[in-house]
Amino acid sequence: MSSFSRNINTIQDYQEVVSALENYVEGLRTGNIEKLQKSFHQDAIMYGHWEGHLIEGDIKNLYDSVERHGSAPDLKAHIDVLHKTTTTALGRIEYEGNAAGKDGIDYHSLLKIKGEWVVISKVFHVYDK
């Protein structure tokens, strides 16, 4: 079989990416920072606007926000894998009802490192209510 017709995007691969993003959503839902940390590379970054302020830099900003706001037991989320290669993926998570009562959208860049999918960057938008 020639290499150009080989399927590099198996259902299992997509399920692994979705699983990493579901872990992130569950960490938000439960307010579990340790669970969130498992979803992100230790040097991950995030950028976006929150209540008129640019949030930028270290993923610790997310952990601080979850610590401040707590769990989001009514969080609803929809996960899409926008694109995937054997080592990279782009995910989109649309959500309603985070711990601060806000709705928004996250775009996550993931990298497969040592067989595990981790988020290396998060870009987000929070909608006005």
Rank of each mutant, 00 (worst) to 15 (best):
Y95N: 02
I113G: 01
G48R: 03
E94N: 15
D80A: 10
E67F: 08
T86W: 03
G104W: 01
N32I: 05
Q15S: 13
H125S: 13
D43C: 04
N32V: 05
Y47N: 10
A99D: 08
I33F: 04
I55S: 00
I55G: 00
G91C: 13
R92A: 03
F40H: 03
L111N: 11
I33E: 06
I113E: 08
S109A: 09
S71H: 12
D43L: 11
Q37N: 10
Q42E: 14
K129L: 07
T88Y: 02
G97A: 10
E22L: 08
Y63P: 02
L36A: 12
I113L: 07
T10N: 14
A77Y: 01
E56F: 07
I93C: 02
S65Y: 02
N7W: 00
F40E: 01
I33T: 13
E34Y: 10
E96D: 14
L111P: 05
H78C: 03
A99S: 15
N32F: 08
R6K: 15
A20M: 00
V81N: 04
E116Y: 07
L110G: 05
L111W: 04
S2R: 05
G101S: 06
V123L: 07
Q15L: 14
N23H: 09
G57Q: 03
T88D: 09
L54F: 04
E51Q: 02
E67N: 14
I11H: 12
A99Q: 14
G52T: 03
K129M: 04
K84S: 15
W117V: 08
A89G: 12
D128L: 08
Y127M: 06
I55Y: 08
